[in-house]
Every structure is written in structure tokens, then in C-alpha cells.
Design a protein around this nucleic acid. Structure first.
Ligand code: MN
Ligand code: MN
Ligand code: MN
Ligand code: MN
Lengths: 151, 151
DNA sequence: ACGACAATATAGCCATTGCTATATTCTTGT
DNA sequence: ACAAGAATATAGCAATGGCTATATTGTCGT
């Protein structure tokens, strides 16, 4: 509102503007990196499991079509996360491996934390797949502390 | 992998395929409704606070440009969440009000839960803005239980 | 009453993330 | 060796969510 009839001090529903702006900005940012994180994490897992990460396997795991994967892999290669040999599987660069490791650890902490709260493993897995990308370092630490306390 | 050299029973890094597919599907779904939820919630808050929700205020709060808001409002109107009078603020339909109420409550629970974990209010606010959209009913209940336990 | 200014509308651009359809290339079994 | 099938590449489309620039419309103060 440009002109507020009721002064802010009456504490309406509205939250501090600057914090909210920053929250939305941060969320938009996380949304932009979400897919990249899931891809490198999945690629790392596929390589760890079967020695290679092929487009068909990635597509199947993600539940999307193969050309969708092909396009994203090009982007990941352009951004230096993976290396692609035509008609071969993809491999992670050092940078890709780092991001994969960070993502995997964060993912695991979030999922474990949800399980520790008594949430069913299925739901924990589903929710963690989304939540992981929006958890800050501070929140991750809090999750870890909570897990340690129950350890 | 079409042909696995190591049988699944050796329990590699890879998680059950069907659950993972479903997790990614669910996450993509939540991502699609994320913005809509934030818009109606914000519109409800602006109306509660100042009696009206104008494009400029929405744009300012979200940290985006006014035409971005104008386009989204058309979509919200088309989907029956709001009513628009040209050159006037927007108003929520019954459907819009319902979604706003649900979103606001869920948002509040997530933020309170994070605070209860000892996370700073600033971080809790930022993280909750993203996390809220990926929290299932079951997880929300677990958060509520945890909050109740802390009295 | 009307000119300034504020708010909204519209046009046109771009990036992202999905899709289908189809062409190309690799691999494998006979 | 080579045909069939599997995997990858490419083309072209659509929806979404951003942006800037600009036109139109309301509102308010004098
Ligand atoms: Mn993940
Ligand atoms: Mn994920
Ligand atoms: Mn919200
Ligand atoms: Mn939000």
C-alpha cells in the first residue's frame, strides 16, 4: 500500500516487506538450481551403482522423456558439470562430483530428519525430494543437531 | 540400467525406482502450483491489511516487475482464483480464499516449526517460503505434533 | 476542470522445462 | 556381416515465468 490507513504498528497480517522480498528472491533462486542438483545427484548414483549414466536410465528415473534429458545434459555439459561423449553415457567433472556430493548429503539429512519425526519412509522420501532444495545451511545444521540428539 | 552387473540385492546407492519416479513427479507437481499459492496468499494478506491488493503492491512484495504480475493475475482469474476489475485491485473468489487460507496456515506451521528448532527467525522465514510448497499433509501433521509437544 | 502523475494494460522479447515425431548411430544376435 | 532393435540426436511445438518499453486509463490536487 502506498498509503496505509492503519499504521504498521497495529501488527496486521503483513510481514516485514524487505524480508519477504528477500525470501521470494531466494526461493526463485533455489528453484532455478533445483533441477541441476537432482540431475548431478542422480547421475552420481547411477554411476556408483552401474558404472554408467545413460540418458534412458536418467529419463526413466526422473519420469520424463529422453529428449528432455538430452537437452538438460547439454546444459550441464555447457556449465561444466558433466562430460558427454556422443552416444555414450555421461560422466561427472570434478565440479559435478562436488555438487553431487553436497546435494546427496543434504538430501540424506533432510530425509533422515523427516523419518526421525515419525513420518513414513515413503512420504519422507517424496517430501525430501522437494524440500532439500530450499533448506539453507543454517536449517541443515539444525536438522543435523536434532538427529544427533536422537542418535 | 537394462543389464545390471551387480544385483539389486547388494544394496547400492540407488533407491527403489518406482518411489523415486513418484517423488520426482510429485515435486514437479508442487513446483507448478508454487507460484499460485504464493500469489493468493499474498493477495489475501494485502486485502486483510489494507482492504485491497493492487498490482504494484504485489509486484513490490514479490520483487518482480508489474507486467509479470499482470500476466499471472490473468492466469489466476482464468483459473477462477481471483476476480479482476480493469484498473482496480483484485479480489479473491471463494475458491481463491480457500486456497489462500490453506496456504497461509501451512506456511505458518512450517515457519513456526523451523523457529521451534532453534533456527533464526530470518532464516526460518526465508526457508519456509520455499519449503512450504513441498510439505505433504502427513509431514504437516508431524510438524504440528512436534509444535504441540513443545507446548 | 484539467494537467500530472500513478497504475494498469499490452506488445514483444528471452530462458527454462516439458512434449512428440523422426532421423541418426551404435550394438548385438544370428 | 548385417539386419533389427536400442539408444541418442535433432527439430519443432507449447506452457510458464521472467524482463523492458510503451500506451492507455484513473485519480487527485490545484
Ligand atoms: Mn536429491
Ligand atoms: Mn530433489
Ligand atoms: Mn507462502
Ligand atoms: Mn512460498
Amino acid at each position: 500500500m502506498s498509503i496505509k490507513p492503519t499504521p504498521e504498528t497495529f501488527q496486521g497480517v503483513l510481514v516485514d516487506a524487505d524480508t519477504q522480498i528477500e525470501s521470494f528472491r531466494q526461493t526463485r533462486n533455489s528453484r532455478r538450481t533445483e533441477l541441476v542438483e537432482d540431475y548431478v545427484e542422480l547421475i552420481a548414483d547411477l554411476i556408483a551403482d552401474g558404472g554408467e549414466a545413460r540418458q534412458v536410465d536418467i529419463a526413466h528415473r526422473l519420469g520424463v522423456a529422453q529428449p528432455t534429458v538430452a537437452k538438460m545434459l547439454k546444459r550441464l555439459a555447457a556449465e561444466g558439470f558433466i562430460q558427454q561423449k556422443p552416444y555414450r553415457g555421461v560422466f561427472l567433472t570434478a565440479r559435478g562430483n562436488e555438487l553431487a556430493a553436497r546435494s546427496r548429503e543434504r538430501h540424506h539429512i533432510v530425509e533422515s530428519f523427516l523419518c526421525a519425526l515419525g513420518i513414513s519412509p515413503e512420504t519422507a522420501r517424496i517430501d525430501a525430494e522437494g524440500i532439500e532444495h530450499y533448506v539453507s545451511a543454517e536449517t541443515l545444521e539444525a536438522f543435523k543437531s536434532h538427529l544427533a540428539k536422537l542418535g
